[in-house]
Simulated assay, not measured.
Amino acid sequence: MPLATSMTKNVDFIVIGERVTVCAVEEDFHSILAGYGSGNGLSIKLADERLNSFMGVEGFDPRPILKNMESPILWFFGTKDDVIPVNASMEVLDKMNKNNLEIILLPIGDHNVKNY
């Protein structure tokens, strides 16, 4: 969504659910470690720890686009999402320290934004 909205000036606000702010290869690496949401991979905590030592080649990186976005953004993450690196994504957003961003953390939300 950030890439698409960066190509137009007619965006009043953006709502994003369960999407990453890290590069595509980091996302894929984390997903592989966590078992692609199958429940058969590493725990989210272990996958996060291993992601911190990721040394692979990066793919598409949304961070430069996110830094330049001026539209208000509402971003949803779930703490039980074992498909994307939620903690790494939230860390990127926190470091940007943007006034136009609000993050909602679903305490037991999964990748499908189910919070029950």
Rank of each mutant, 00 (worst) to 15 (best):
D28K: 13
D82W: 00
G59F: 06
G41K: 06
G35P: 01
T79K: 08
T79A: 12
G37V: 09
S38L: 02
F54K: 08
I44W: 06
I32W: 14
S38I: 03
P62F: 08
H30M: 05
A47K: 04
I32G: 11
I44Y: 11
G37H: 09
R63S: 10
P64I: 06
P64Y: 06
D81R: 01
F76Q: 06
N52M: 15
N40A: 13
F54G: 05
D81S: 04
S38T: 13
S43Y: 06
M55V: 10
F54S: 03
K67L: 12
N52Q: 15
F60C: 09
L33I: 04
V57I: 15
P64F: 04
P64C: 05
I65G: 03
M69H: 11
G39E: 03
P85L: 00
V86P: 00
H30W: 15
F76N: 07
F60M: 13
A34F: 02
G39R: 09
G41Y: 03
N52S: 15
L74W: 08
S53Q: 15
F60E: 15
R50T: 06
D48N: 12
S43E: 05
F76K: 10
G41R: 03
V83G: 00
F77Q: 11
S43F: 07
D61I: 11
N40F: 12
E70S: 14
W75G: 02
S31Y: 11
G39A: 04
K45A: 13
F29A: 05
E70V: 12
L74F: 13
N40T: 14
S38C: 07
D82S: 05
S53L: 14
A47L: 10
A47Q: 04
P62N: 11
G56E: 12
F54P: 02
P64D: 07
K67P: 02
L66T: 04
I44P: 02
W75K: 07
G56C: 10
F60A: 14
K80Y: 01
S71G: 01
I73K: 11
H30E: 01
S71K: 10
S53E: 14
G78H: 02
D81H: 02
P62D: 09
P72E: 06
I44V: 14
L33D: 02
G78D: 01
E49W: 09
K80R: 13
G37F: 07
F60H: 12
F77D: 03
F29Y: 15
L46E: 15
F60L: 14
N52I: 11
S71E: 14
L33A: 04
P62C: 10
G39N: 06
G39W: 08
D82L: 00
F60Q: 12
F29M: 06
P85R: 00
Y36T: 08
G56Y: 13
P64K: 02
P72Q: 01
P85I: 00
L42M: 14
D81Y: 00
A34G: 04
F77E: 11
R50W: 12
I65T: 12
V86H: 00
F54N: 05
I73P: 01
R50K: 15
K80H: 09
L66A: 07
D28L: 14
L51T: 03
A34T: 05
G41F: 03
D48Q: 03
S71D: 09
N40Y: 12
D28E: 15
L74S: 09
A47G: 09
L46G: 00
I65W: 11
P72G: 05
I32P: 07
G56Q: 10
L33N: 04
V86L: 00
V86Y: 00
F77T: 09
